[in-house]
């Protein structure tokens, strides 16, 4: 039926938005666009219609390297036992005030 028309493959981009009060860009989804300019425009049109965004990042999906979830143990558990990295590990007398 429309096999000719579906031949054009438009690249996939991941979209990250930092909201008005946000501190970091959050992944909100993906979209298809031919280049970065169109991707940014599309992200604005698709993902910020309710005032969600103040800053948009678009990244080609194939540029993202993700950790292997099967290696969660190796990648992340060693950090769990190093509790001296957490502020709560250390005791500071109340008289000193907030630190």
């Amino acid at each position: 039926m429309s096999t000719q028309a579906t031949k054009t493959i438009t690249p996939l981009w991941e979209v990250f938005i930092r909201s008005r009060n946000g501190l970091a860009h959050k992944h909100v989804g993906s979209l298809h666009a031919a280049d970065a300019t169109l991707a940014l425009q599309a992200a604005r049109d698709v993902y910020t219609r309710r005032g969600e965004g103040l800053s948009i990042w678009v990244v080609p999906s194939n540029a993202i390297t993700a950790s292997d979830p099967g290696e969660k143990g190796m990648m992340f558990e060693p950090a769990e036992s190093k509790i001296y990295r957490h502020p709560t590990f250390y005791e500071v007398p109340d008289e000193v005030g907030h630190m």
């Binding site: 429309s2 000719q4 028309a5 579906t6 054009t8 438009t10 666009a33 031919a34 169109l38």
Partner: peptide, 12 residues
């Protein structure tokens, strides 16, 4: 979709 093919092709 069919009528939009030339647009998508142009962008690429």
């Amino acid at each position: 979709h069919d009528e939009g093919a030339w647009v998508r092709e142009a962008a690429m």
